[in-house]
């Protein structure tokens, strides 16, 4: 039941640079920590983030254990046409989360 918040302008002009912000809820357990009894806590992180714009991949990020919990990513793209932008986070322990947003290009 992880949550994600994505934010981008709903309508933009053609050719304009669009800033996209994504925030996802995840503890990002590094795998380097141990419990008080010395038992290693298994790694549980998001491994990959992919953003597609009308099916075409426009941004990809690989995550490693040093990434903060609840990772916040900000990136930009050029508005080419109206359509949908899809965001997918996948990670350890079968973590998978998808979010999408509409964008209208005038």
């Amino acid at each position: 039941m992880a949550r994600a918040v994505v934010s981008l302008p709903a309508t933009v002009k053609r050719g304009e640079i669009v800033e996209i912000k994504t925030l996802v809820q995840h503890a990002m357990e590094t795998g380097f920590r141990r419990t008080q009894l010395g038992i290693a806590i298994p790694r549980d992180i998001i491994r990959l983030f992919v953003c597609t714009y009308n099916g075409e991949e426009i941004f990809r990020a690989e995550f490693h254990p040093a990434i903060a919990a609840n990772p916040l990513l900000t990136f930009t793209t050029v508005a080419t046409e109206s359509g949908s932008i899809a965001f997918t986070w996948t990670g350890d322990k079968g973590f998978s989360l998808t979010e999408s947003a509409r964008i209208t290009v005038e």
Binding site: R3, V5, V6, S7, K21, L23, Q25, N70, L72, T74
Partner: peptide, 13 residues
């Protein structure tokens, strides 16, 4: 910014 404040995730919960 509510798009970057991580506490927003808890607000939704």
């Amino acid at each position: 910014d509510d798009a970057t404040n991580p506490a927003v995730l808890w607000l939704l919960d």
